[in-house]
């Protein structure tokens, strides 16, 4: 899922003009699960803003199923018509979809969208995939080298791996390649680690314009 966290309140407030009619919109999907932009967070942010120095004409709050889907955006038409500013608590995709859909309104982001990842334990989220477009989990025992290794190396651990930790943060960060090594060893597949992986084809990754998928079979 997509993991995000709330921007500092001062940064959010900075861009909202005084005396606006504000509509804060949460999203019920990823950001609800990662406790950054669901219904609960909308309520909390509403009261934080109402208690701040910045005076608003009105503050309304709501949340919809998925901001990244047009289908659900239409549900809040009436409420949008009565506001000046939409403060979206969705991920970057949701904010953009909201902006596109209600293109006459100023839509501001309340979150910083960080990564695609997992909830490891309460209060701890971890990046798991960069969306590289060329998945290599088959040769790395189901652990992503591009994400979990700080340098995105493809041919095994660098010289900075010590005690299972990465040179980037030897206290807290696991060395991705150490994890991969242990997993492959367990699976009796260390031979895949011995094979030289050729340079990556970055054209499959984000390297020029948004990537698109066009499925002729599904186009109307």
């Amino acid at each position: 899922m997509i993991i995000a966290e709330q921007k500092p309140v001062n940064e959010i407030l900075k861009n909202i003009p005084e005396n606006s009619r504000l509509l804060i919109v949460g999203c019920d999907t990823c950001v609800t699960v990662c406790l950054a932009g669901g219904e609960k967070e909308v309520a909390v942010l509403s009261s934080v803003i109402s208690m701040s120095d910045k005076k608003m004409k009105s503050i309304e709050g709501t949340s919809i199923e998925r901001q990244c889907d047009k289908e659900f955006l239409s549900e809040i038409k009436d409420r949008v018509s009565e506001c000046d500013i939409i403060l979206s608590m969705a991920c970057g995709v949701g904010v953009q979809m909201m902006s596109d859909y209600y293109n006459g309104k100023i839509v501001l982001p309340a979150l910083n969208t960080l990564f695609m990842g997992s909830n490891e334990e309460t209060g701890y989220w971890l990046e798991r995939c960069l969306g590289c477009g060329d998945c290599s989990l088959d040769i790395t025992g189901g652990i992503c080298p591009k994400t979990r290794c700080s340098k995105g190396l493809m041919n095994g651990p660098c010289g900075g791996s010590e005690g299972g930790k990465c040179e980037v943060d030897p206290e807290n960060l696991d060395c991705g390649w150490n994890l991969i090594y242990n997993r492959l060893k367990e699976l009796n597949r260390l031979d895949t680690m011995a094979a030289i992986q050729p340079p990556r084809d970055w054209s499959k990754s984000h390297d020029g314009g948004p990537r698109r998928i066009i499925r002729e079979d599904l186009l109307l």
Binding site: S150, K151, N155, E167, P199
Partner: peptide, 23 residues
């Protein structure tokens, strides 16, 4: 391969690592 940029004096730099040392 090269040390990670966080070890140096431009920690905000973007690293490249287009290829690794073996490649």
């Amino acid at each position: 391969t090269g040390d990670h940029q966080c070890m140096g004096n431009h920690p905000g730099a973007k690293h490249v690592f287009d290829i690794d040392s073996i490649q």
